[in-house]
Amino acid sequence: MARRKLSLFINGHGRSVLHRSGFSWLAFVGLPLWALHRRLWWALPLTLLLPTALHAAVNALLELLPSTDAQGLLAIVWLVAESWTMGHWANRWHLWWLNWRGYQLTATELPPEQWPDAPTLAATQGHP
């Protein structure tokens, strides 16, 4: 797995957020822990409710299966797949959210060829 790259995003109000690219093992282990680590306080209840609701729904579906062996096997497959999905998408979703909220890439570990073509904050916010 490629090394995660760190980037600093800043919005027009001067708030700075650190973004990590790539797979998130923290989200794989527990989505609420990932939200805590990213200081996404408002997302914390969502990250608690989402897995709980998903687990409840999947468990209800699994109970429809006649074989308990199949239930157990599918439960394990579901848990791994769900955790992997969380780990895969968490940081991507974070990047999307940062862009949507108007945060701009200010500094990064990324090589220059991977920098996005964004209008500079200096032009839009009046850099001194």
Partner: peptide
Amino acid sequence: QRYMGFREVQPPPRAWWDRQ
């Protein structure tokens, strides 16, 4: 040390310095 290896992409807005 990782942060010290960062490269500036664009300057931060004035609001960032005010906030600091």
